[in-house]
């Protein structure tokens, strides 16, 4: 332990600003009659996404008793959708989420996430609301919108939905030293997005990227894009090249949801990743009926970073991972 490790990494002034932003977020939703909810951060089920690793905890009924694995939640999404299916109406949650191994200038394994759901909204209507919140906090006037496809065409001159894999690889290798031998289109698209497009977005202020490839739908529904090619009703907000929010016009089809969970589980198996219990209660909730809704998750620490014009997450949280 270093002598100064007891100190917060963020200044007290930054923490004061952070508190003002948290209060402004709660005011924003109170004014719009969106209900604040709290759901467990400790669950019997884990996220299925192969690229998100849950932190495991163990529960014992008494010290030394038989232990039961539990998982710190990587997002409140599953539980909040169960509330929506139970008739909650519009809800938001401002709370902690946990992701194993995610530590860096913009990541802390434990972070503050704002997630909200709006019945009867689609992705475009929810982008309007994200815009209203973020512009209010950051003092912006408006946020540009561009489709994933148009962005790749504009920045890299290739069509991400149609270009052959060989073209994606050639484009990446032309400007990056990357050893990757991967036959998955999405790996290459993610590489191009994170290494070439995000840095290019750094000079463009705030940008919504929407209509992701169908293969990157996650929990968004699919719909035909401009030329009929299916796209995901998903958007991401980037500000100064930093990913700030990810939203969907939500999938409500229980069978499709069950299928995506199973597909994630088999891709986990093929990647040699741990098999963890799937959230079958989410499938049951969708069978009961999730209202037509849109939902979004927003990284609050990053929002504070942008408001305070700092590039390090440790400037906006009192005790980051290495001092926790």
């Amino acid at each position: 332990m270093k002598a100064q490790d007891w100190r917060p990494s963020a200044s007290i002034e930054n923490l004061r600003r952070r508190a003002q932003i948290l209060a402004a977020i709660r005011d924003f939703f109170a004014a719009r009659n969106v209900l604040e909810v709290e759901t467990p951060t400790l669950s019997h089920r884990a996220v299925s996404d192969p690229f998100i690793d849950s932190i495991e905890a163990v529960y014992a009924p008494f010290p030394g008793g038989p232990v039961q694995p539990l998982y710190l939640q990587s997002s409140p999404e599953y539980a909040m959708k169960r509330l929506l299916a139970a008739g909650s109406g519009a809800i938001y949650q401002l709370g902690r989420a946990y992701r194993n191994g995610e530590s860096g200038g913009r990541h802390n394994p434990e972070f503050t996430m704002l997630e909200w759901y709006r019945p009867d909204f689609d992705d475009a209507a929810l982008m309007d609301e994200v815009e209203a919140l973020v512009c209010g906090v950051l003092g912006l006037s408006s946020i540009r919108r561009v489709t994933y496809r148009a962005l790749f065409q504009e920045q890299l001159g290739l069509d991400p939905l149609k270009a052959p894999l060989s073209q994606l690889k050639a484009c990446a290798r032309a400007s990056l030293d990357v050893a990757m031998e991967d036959e998955d289109r999405d790996s290459w698209l993610n590489l191009l997005m994170s290494h070439l497009i995000e840095p290019a977005l750094a000079g463009q202020g705030a940008v919504f990227v929407h209509e992701f490839p169908a293969s990157q739908a996650a929990l968004a529904r699919l719909r035909p894009g401009e030329d009929g090619t299916p796209v995901a009703a998903r958007f991401e907000l980037f500000i100064q090249g930093m990913e700030l929010a990810n939203g969907y016009h939500e999938l409500t089809d229980a069978a499709e949801q069950a299928h995506r969970l199973e597909a994630d589980q088999s891709s986990r198996a093929s990647l040699g990743l741990p098999q963890r219990p799937l959230e079958d209660r989410l499938v049951s909730a969708l069978q009961q009926g999730l209202p037509d809704c849109a939902g979004v998750a927003l990284g609050v620490d990053r929002l504070v970073m942008l408001a305070l014009q700092t590039t390090s997450i440790s400037d906006v949280i009192a005790f980051p991972f290495d001092r926790a």
Partner: peptide, 27 residues
């Protein structure tokens, strides 16, 4: 550490070759 909210994570490293002194970025 380059980790999109969804999808593959990458580690981007500034490298220096200790023999030639060359510096570059590798993912």
């Amino acid at each position: 550490f380059v980790k999109p909210g969804k999808g593959q994570a990458f580690t981007r490293v500034k490298m220096r070759n200790l023999i030639s002194g060359r510096t570059w970025e590798k993912t």
